[in-house]
Simulated scan of single mutants.
Amino acid sequence: MFGLFKTYDVHMCSEVKGVLTLDGSPLGGIVVNRYLKFAYKLEKEDQTITNQDGSFYLPEVKIQSKIPGDMFSQESTFQLITVNYSDKSYELWRSKFPGLVELSEYKKKLSCLNGDLSSEKVNFAFQNDTDENLEFSASSICRWENDFEVYQINDDTDYFKDL
Rank of each mutant, 00 (worst) to 15 (best):
V32M: 12
N33G: 01
N33A: 01
N33V: 07
N33M: 07
R34Y: 03
R34F: 02
L36E: 12
L36K: 01
L36R: 02
F38E: 00
A39V: 06
Y40C: 11
Y40I: 04
Y40W: 06
L42G: 04
E43A: 06
E43F: 00
K44T: 04
K44R: 10
E45W: 14
D46Y: 06
D46M: 10
Q47N: 10
T48C: 05
I49F: 03
I49R: 01
I49A: 01
T50F: 08
T50K: 01
N51I: 00
N51H: 10
Q52K: 15
D53R: 05
Y57W: 12
Y57H: 12
Y57P: 05
L58E: 09
P59T: 07
P59Y: 04
E60T: 05
V61Y: 03
I63Q: 00
Q64I: 01
S65K: 00
S65D: 03
K66Q: 11
I67R: 05
I67K: 10
I67S: 09
P68A: 08
G69W: 05
G69T: 01
D70H: 10
D70L: 08
F72G: 12
Q74L: 14
E75R: 12
E75P: 04
S76T: 12
T77S: 07
F78A: 15
F78K: 15
Q79P: 00
L80F: 11
L80T: 08
L80D: 12
T82V: 09
V83K: 02
N84W: 09
Y85N: 11
S86W: 09
D87S: 13
D87L: 12
D87P: 03
K88W: 11
K88R: 15
K88D: 15
Y90N: 02
Y90S: 00
Y90C: 02
Y90R: 02
Y90Q: 03
E91I: 13
E91L: 09
L92H: 09
L92M: 13
W93M: 11
W93D: 09
R94G: 14
R94A: 14
S95D: 11
S95W: 03
S95P: 05
K96S: 12
P98F: 08
P98E: 11
S104C: 01
E105G: 08
E105Q: 14
K107P: 00
K107Y: 11
K107G: 04
K108F: 07
K108L: 11
K108V: 12
K108Q: 13
K109D: 03
K109E: 02
L110G: 08
L110C: 14
L110T: 15
L110N: 14
